[in-house]
Every structure is written in structure tokens, then in C-alpha cells.
Simulated assay, not measured.
Amino acid sequence: MGQIHLKQTFNHPADQVWAWLKDYGNIHRIHPMIGHSYIEGEQSCGVGAVRICEMNMGGFQLKERVLDWQENQSYTVDIYETTMPLMKRSLATFGVRAIEAETSEVYIDIEYTTTFGIFGKIMDALFMNPVMTVMMKRMFRKLDEFLSSSRQQSLDAPG
């Protein structure tokens, strides 16, 4: 089983970070590999919500369902259907913890299984895990950029 565990400190309050993370249907705004994402069905967030993610390259798609939702803290998704090669199934938790009033820690914990037995495990070690790790680090950077630009826009707004 492959695993990725990342965390990063942000100079933004946890509630502002959560506002971006909880926007379940719009993960494509902060995830660099997802070209488009959308909700399937009536439920936009919370346990049972389903989203479809269309990847930027390869025409790959994945379908995720929320298994756990802790408001203002975290959510866990089950990637239960995908056209991505080598990926069989994955659980991913996205969360935020307040450190201080203006500082928070964002974390991503991913556990996944690959297809093709030993070949899949070798490809995971050589390619898949390193690429997914870089992708998640880029997601942190993009999230920080959006939060910083949102903060700057509110500071620049006439008041």
C-alpha cells in the first residue's frame, strides 16, 4: 500500500483555509492536476457527497465519495472509481488545524493501492508516489497563493 503524508504551516487563519478546502466541488481551483471537478447528485458536501475529477492530461477521470466530514477540520474521500493507470483505490484526508489565531497547519494523508501486483508496486516506488507527492506540494502552494491574494484583495478593498 502506498502512502503520502504531508503537512505545511500557513500564515492564514484555519477558518480561511477551511473555506477553500471545504469547497468540495471546486477542488480544481487548487489542485494543479485537475482540470475540472464537479458534484454528482444533489449533495454538495458532507458524508456521501460525490465529485468527479477530470485530470488535465491523459483524459483520466476519478470518482470520489466523502466518507467522513468534520466541519471546520477535515474530510476523507474514497476514490472508488478511476481510469488512471496503476491506481486501484485510494483514501485521502484533507484537513486544517489552528496553530494560532493567524496561523494554521494544512495536512494531506493519502493511502492507496495499485494494480498489477509487484509491477504496480515497482511503478509506484519509481514513478507514482514521487509524482503524487510533488502534486500535493503544488496543491499546498496554490492554496497558499489563493489565500494570500484573497487577503491582499480584502486589504486593498475600500472600506
Rank of each mutant, 00 (worst) to 15 (best):
N26P: 11
K22Q: 10
E42A: 13
V50M: 10
H36I: 11
P32F: 15
I39A: 01
D15W: 02
C45D: 02
A49G: 08
Q43D: 08
G35E: 08
W18L: 03
H36L: 09
R51L: 15
S44R: 08
G46E: 00
A19V: 06
A14G: 06
D15A: 10
M33N: 09
W20R: 03
W18K: 01
Q43I: 14
H12R: 13
G46W: 00
G48C: 05
H36D: 11
D15S: 09
Y24V: 02
L21V: 06
G41T: 09
D23H: 08
Y38H: 12
E42G: 09
S37A: 10
Y24Q: 01
I34V: 08
I39N: 01
Q43P: 07
H31E: 10
V50H: 09
H36A: 14
C45V: 05
G35P: 08
P13F: 00
C45H: 03
E40Q: 10
H28I: 11
I27T: 06
H28Y: 15
S44M: 07
K22S: 06
V47Q: 14
G25H: 04
G48Y: 03
I34E: 01
G35S: 13
C45P: 03
V47R: 15
G25Y: 02
S37Y: 04
Q16Y: 01
C45T: 01
G48V: 00
S37R: 00
G25R: 02
K22F: 05
V17R: 00
R29Q: 10
G35W: 13
R51H: 11
C45E: 01
Q43S: 12
